[in-house]
């Protein structure tokens, strides 16, 4: 009985941890969206805008996330991002495809919001050289990707979209919290040198 209770407690615990995960939603266009509204008391819109701008230019390589539009008057930033999603393999996961998305950041005094949407799945195929390459004309909005992927691969893909969106969001939050997100001065690395002359 005791063992049973302990087992149930353990299952409930793991269930609770899962329940704390974020989730993707649908927006008014019936597109997948990862949306967050964040309060940041004490930070004015200009500061948040500059920090958001710095995030989009410095946080990721341009191939991964690149600023596509900035509108200071509207306190709005737009970026285009992409990353690889893997496919369940027998031994190891392989490149299933890439996922591109749009990231939008809007700021006001003491708060900002951001969302990732317009996810497009580009399936990959193995070419004659054993390399992975995009399937020509194979890109499909994530909302329709279930028609091209197996159920397992589609669910893996959705999981990875969520995890990546959360990662991008968490990183953005860190940049927005920084007192100064301006370019860091590279301080020369201090190297401790040992003198062999005196001993």
């Amino acid at each position: 009985m005791k063992n049973l209770l302990l087992t149930l407690a353990a299952i409930l615990y793991s269930g609770m941890v899962f329940a704390q995960k974020d989730s993707l939603s649908f927006d008014e266009r019936d597109k997948y969206i990862y949306y967050k509204l964040v309060d940041q008391p004490g930070a004015n819109a200009d500061t948040l805008y500059n920090r958001g701008l710095y995030f989009l230019t410095a946080a990721y390589p341009k191939k991964t996330l690149a600023l596509s539009k900035s509108d200071k008057a509207a306190y709005s930033l737009t970026a285009a991002g992409s990353y690889m999603v893997s496919k369940k393999g027998l031994v190891s996961n392989s490149d299933g495809g890439s996922l591109s998305y749009t990231l939008k950041i809007e700021v006001k005094d003491s708060k900002y919001r951001f969302w990732l949407t317009d996810f497009v799945y580009q399936p990959y195929q193995r070419n004659r050289y054993g390399s992975s390459e995009p399937v020509p004309g194979g890109d499909v909005p994530l909302e329709k990707a279930s028609a091209k992927l197996s159920r397992v691969d589609f669910n893996v893909c959705l999981d990875q979209v969520l995890v990546n969106s959360k990662q991008v969001g968490d990183k953005l939050k860190l940049y927005m919290l920084k007192v100064s997100s301006l370019v860091k001065k590279q301080e020369p690395k201090k190297v401790n040198k040992i003198s062999t002359k005196d001993w």
């Binding site: 990353y83 031994v91 190891s92 996961n93 193995r126 995890v163 990546n164």
Partner: peptide, 16 residues
């Protein structure tokens, strides 16, 4: 473990 997605260009060894 599910909260990380490898986004670097250093891909793991792939068996296919």
């Amino acid at each position: 473990a599910q909260d990380t997605v490898k986004t670097t260009s250093d891909a793991p060894l792939v068996i296919y």
